[in-house]
Design a protein around this nucleic acid. Structure first.
Lengths: 145, 145
DNA sequence: TTATTATATAGGATTAATTCTTAATTGCAA
DNA sequence: TTGCAATTAAGAATTAATCCTATATAATAA
């Protein structure tokens, strides 16, 4: 698949750039998370990979995800005290979180992208990223009640 | 102190509203968190209270904070997989998070308050809250490097 | 290629965070 | 007051995250 090849190439570049080895584990983990849009936890990725890669340890998955986060291959999304959740989507986007089922859904909006950093905030901090975070009830949970 | 009395009254109202008992533990915990602006974890609140209330258990602090969160007395702030952090500030506000020291600083901005919920998002979700979340380097950490 | 070496991994141990269990206590309504 | 349902303390159990170390391996250079 095209997107898979692209993923390995992106990974390879980043590894070379940071002097990291391109191991089968790293490839499997990066490909696994690239196929998600639900911001999975380390444990979810671990379980997903277990079938194809029975010898992999949870520690490797967790450590690798943190490494990826450190080199900017993915981000830890803002959560609410539950296990860390990872997001391979580096494009500017926003999040909606359901307070019932705790799902985090990507929101794309030019309008939100265009929200500016006011001058007084710029002088207080070095702002590297911004995001609009919405919360409420998702469609599925709305149906249930 | 005036703000302290106010805190107890707010707590009492909410407790009556939800059929909860007004216990000394709840009062102590609510007053403690009302005096913070640094979005402390349950553990920090626990340590803060320990001096005045040596018999209180960590579990009580944690459970009580979650109860407060459930009845809307405070909120669990968006974090990054670390222990839950609580925010008694229910006024519309925004957050800046330092990626170095993990401090979360309140940001007040009329401009950010005025950011709207687009129509297509309203139709997908029942949006109950919104916040602009900034991240970057805070002043203190900028000095260090 | 092959040898070398620094890095990475597996798997179990450890630590930390959170939640559960239970017996005792205590607000508060009657 | 009294009775009872809600709440608490304390420790156990569970779950999440990190650390340790012996082994394996990717990448480099001969």
């Amino acid at each position: 698949m095209n997107t898979q090849r692209a993923a390995v190439e992106i990974l390879r570049e980043k590894c070379v750039e940071h002097g990291l080895k391109l191991t089968p584990q790293r490839i499997a983990i990066y490909e696994a998370i690239c196929h998600t849009t639900d911001h999975p936890s380390a444990d979810k990725i671990f379980k997903k990979i277990k079938g194809k890669f029975p010898s992999m340890s949870f520690d490797t998955v967790n450590r690798t995800l943190l490494t990826f986060s450190a080199i900017g291959l993915l981000k830890v999304v803002e959560g609410h005290g539950d296990p860390k959740r990872f997001d391979p989507n580096l494009k500017q986007h926003h999040h909606f979180r359901c307070i019932r089922c705790n799902t985090i859904i990507d929101v794309y909006s030019r309008y939100y992208d265009s929200v500016k950093i006011p001058q007084d905030i710029q002088s207080r901090f070095t702002v590297l990223g911004k995001r609009v975070v919405l919360e409420g009830i998702c469609k599925q949970c709305r149906k249930k009640s």
